[in-house]
Amino acid sequence: MPIARSPKIAGALALALAVVAGCGSGDAEQAPAAEAQTRVFTADNGDITIPVAPKRVVATGYAVPAMLEADAPLVGISTWQRGIPLMSDEDRKRYEELPKIAGETAAETNYEAVAQADPDLIVIGVPKPVLADIDLKRLEQIAPVVAIGPSVPSMWRELSRKQADAAGSLAAFDAVRDEYQAKAKKLAEKYAAVLPGLKLGHVGAYGEVAKGNFQREFNGSWGTNVVQDMGATYYGEVKVKGGGSKDVSEYPSIEELPAAFADAEVITYSVKPDGSVPPPVQYALDSPLWKELPAVKAGKVFPLRYTEAATYRSAMRTLDAADEALTPLLNR
């Protein structure tokens, strides 16, 4: 009977209200309410509702170095071998300590390990075409998923900021970005009398450089975009835009080497972090056609290290390496 039960129900309600009111009275107890706050974030996979201040973030792919640099509250990451030589000691220590929830490729995602990490946000940093290799629906059952992958290589500036924004770590990110921009500005001033007036060409080693071909990189590519911040211009453009990095780099036959760099006054080429030359670049350097290039005959050929930088802190290493490599230009 409702009337007969009402005193008990009223008592229970009163107790519950008292507990709730008590919880709301102290600062420490306000956290759950703050955590519950959400916002809508626009990512490659649509408009996603994510926590305003995520506490447990899982990151994969290009998001890994960006999240490490932004001091995001990471609880799991994919492996990111190619970025290790570019990491600071602190980031590298943290990278090694964090649980690995995926391998180098998107297809190597360990969904059980992701669930075990118990994230409140998952940031996927892989290119759009590769998203098909990931079971997004399965990940969305664990936590909100935002996919923010690279397109044109030089876009790492905007994308890494977006990744840091999703993880609620913009302040730390912007501090590193400002440091980079100040360094780049200083170098641009140092080379102001030299670089802006030159036509540069770049031989890269990124992606699938098949035998008999070489990679030529233009403005906005991996090997060129950081040096551009120093005032360099890599002239020309691809014959056919292939989307993504193929909008700013191409893989011509070695026969086209003379035509590709006929107007280049300076040629730069990618080397590994230890300074060794990758096989696809070595192939171009060993070609008899290379020795006939005007820039080579003029001795204006320079190796560039750390050309795969995709974060501000790692790009500062690229700036230092480029400064070291291009110094001879100042003495001519």
Binding site: A210, G212, Y283
Partner: peptide, 10 residues
Amino acid sequence: AVGSLAGREQ
């Protein structure tokens, strides 16, 4: 693994 005659001249 992808057989090619290109790039073998060296």
